[in-house]
Design a protein around this nucleic acid. Structure first.
Lengths: 146, 146
DNA sequence: TTTGGTTAGTTGTTAAAACAACTATATGCC
DNA sequence: GGCATATAGTTGTTTTAACAACTAACCAAA
């Protein structure tokens, strides 16, 4: 058996996502401490809407790598929290277009700052070169399995 | 602002764990297709028990990076599925020691093969050097945030 | 040996994930 | 136009995640 094989089999943490779980928990704590009642999942939806809103739930599914029922419920909860509004599309009556509320726009910078802070903490002591390699590998993994 | 900072802030996929989610889903599919009614979370518990069983739920919490209530329920379900048994510790009556059943021992090699296969598929085209860098970075992240 | 703090595990609750099954609308082909 | 198929979104169900609050048992110090 080539050495290659053996090493790959030890990638338990890759499968279980221990690192991303740790980062997500840290970010969640920052949200809680700032009394932003926002889950990481909700944040991940807002993250894309801050770049561009007025997109469909289906677009958000692709962006966040989640299925349609999950998105329905995430948007439900974001709507209850007063962060987004569903506006029926006029060109395609099957679609909801999701728009940010003023409240959601207000918290954008705060949330962005917390995310930045969290990633800084997580990657402290890691060289930029290595970070680039990781980003690259994570992207390949995503492409390989899509 | 140093270039360094800007790049880190773009690590959305690090926080959301898109890659590990993709890997976990792929592995879950293999389990389902083989009629192994086993969730990834249950598998992650068995993964450690296959190395050493007769350990406490608390030990499993540390190993799998989950909290105590989550482990109670995972062990509940593994017990229902006939994969493990709780045996009260004689030296410390607070503790349950978790033992594998014969059934769990039987499926070890099959599960291990599926995990190996999945990681192979995920990392196809990625050099061993880069994989090593990733493992290293993920470990540092975990240490930084623990 | 009693008291106070710690550790192991369980229960309750809310949000989310994944899958199947469903409705409604759109689209492409005859 | 009418029908088959695809797409957008919702609902139902089961399992998990995370947190708080709880019980039971252990341990150490007065």
């Amino acid at each position: 058996m080539p050495n290659n094989q053996f090493k790959k089999s030890e990638l338990y943490s890759f499968i279980t996502g221990v690192a991303s779980t740790a980062i997500a928990r840290r970010l969640q704590k920052k949200f809680n401490q700032a009394d932003l009642s926002l889950t990481i999942e909700q944040w991940s939806v807002l993250y894309h809407l801050w770049k561009e809103d007025g997109i469909s739930q289906q677009d958000l599914c692709k962006a966040t790598f989640r299925d349609k029922p999950s998105m329905t419920r995430l948007v439900d909860n974001l709507e209850k929290a007063g962060m987004v509004k569903r506006i029926p599309s006029r060109s395609d009556r099957r679609k909801n277009l999701i728009y940010l509320t003023e409240r959601a726009k207000e918290i954008q910078d705060t949330c962005y700052g917390f995310a930045e802070e969290t990633v800084e903490e997580a990657l402290s002591g890691v060289s930029q070169d290595k970070i680039e390699v990781c980003k690259e590998v994570l992207k390949v993994v995503y492409e390989n399995l899509r």
